[in-house]
Nucleic acid binder design. Structure first.
Lengths: 223, 223
DNA sequence: ACCTGAACACCGTTCAAGT
DNA sequence: ACCTGAACACCGTTCAAGT
């Protein structure tokens, strides 16, 4: 209950900023993944970044899985919720959903982890949910619809984040074109005139469909 | 170009059904995963099931990743596309989407793999796409809309398959309830009277939203 | 053509020993 | 309280040697 409960004891010869902590481990993990990718992220490489033996990490973290959960919660911080409270609810949702998808497209290995991450250990994630829930409630969406709406949009976002990493030729049927004429025609018949990436066209389509189904009764705080 | 191009040479002392092949490796992998789960699936355990040394597998497969791709394609076989051609297009889509989600909820570690799996190496997956594309085209959906519609619904399905594995208490805010009053109220305000699982309620909501946005002009073959 | 057995280069994690 | 270094029990994959 002191004013600064998180202050670490300072010792001569080991400067304060060198003490391991959730914050510092998470920051190091993010930096490592940004430069080396998830393939280069191991407990060893993380320890090397922090100039510490790998075993030292286990004084602060119970597993690699936990580091990834910390990272996941930190990454949520990068999702843009600024529209809620300043834009009509649907524009706020669009801003949120697109940035959410983009963030996790860059961190797709974290996507399967979300299913196992309880909000209790993820305060930033909970903060985001609260902002979105306030936005929807303010738009007149009935209480019992808020969670299904959030979960549905979020599931769509996670699936779309994975899809955003698909190679451009994923649907090229090649020599199997003859056995799948209708699908092949659909692939070739896509509208390429706008120059948008196919993953973005699909995301736009699905997002608008989901937003149209949200039973809001008011346009939002400022509209 | 012979009648049976896939026949393996028969030798005395080594019965035909013991020869390794994509079919037999895939079947063994599925059996192993069904009994032991994905955590117990290693190249070693797979080799043990097939009564062979681990290194022997590499005469037939280039990596564990490839085994998983074979498995993924085989698993697509379990998705129910029987509605297409016999039901109104939207009922066929509902049957397909629910079974697709259920199958991959049981095989969620395969979900992130889909993004990297080109249809060229996945004939069963392509067969499924063809069936769905024929169904949508038959319902009068314009060619250029077919792929975005399929990709959007599929992304929603994959995200929902991950969500279906979430623990029931994932949204319990615990001691953080005070800092997230609106979200906590929404969690507590969910409609539990129907007895449906929250993941199913959200899936139903999102699926109906997406189907409502598909620009079909005809009800389907038999309606 | 396809198998075995040994080996390689890693993993994440534990633990006794230090300070 | 928190670090180091050695060790453990695995991984997926390669490769020489066999038949």
């Amino acid at each position: 209950m002191t004013a600064d409960a998180s202050a670490a004891p300072r010792r001569a010869g080991r400067p304060l900023e060198m003490v391991l902590s959730r914050t510092r481990i998470t920051a190091a993990a993010l930096a490592l993944i940004t430069t080396e990718g998830y393939g280069g992220f191991t407990m060893s490489s993380l320890a090397r970044t922090l100039k510490v033996a790998p075993s030292a990490l286990y004084n602060h973290v119970s597993s690699k899985q936990e580091v990834l959960q910390w990272l996941e919660d930190h990454v949520m911080t990068m999702v843009d919720v600024s529209g809620f409270g300043s834009e009509p609810w649907d524009d706020a949702m669009r801003r949120w959903a697109w940035s959410y998808r983009d963030v996790f497209a860059r961190h797709s290995p974290l996507v399967p982890l979300v299913a196992v991450l309880p909000v209790t250990g993820a305060p930033e994630t909970l903060k985001m949910y609260e902002t979105v829930a306030v936005g929807l409630a303010g738009a007149g969406v009935p209480v019992e619809t808020i969670i299904p709406a959030i979960v549905a949009v979020e599931s769509f976002i996670f699936g779309s984040a994975l899809d955003a990493n698909a190679p451009a030729d994923i649907f090229d049927t090649g020599e199997l074109a003859d056995s799948s004429p209708t699908f092949t025609a659909a692939v070739l018949g896509q509208d390429r005139s706008t120059g948008e990436r196919p993953a973005d066209v699909a995301f736009q389509f699905g997002l608008e469909a989901l937003l149209a189904a949200v039973p809001a009764t008011r346009p939002g705080p400022d509209a």
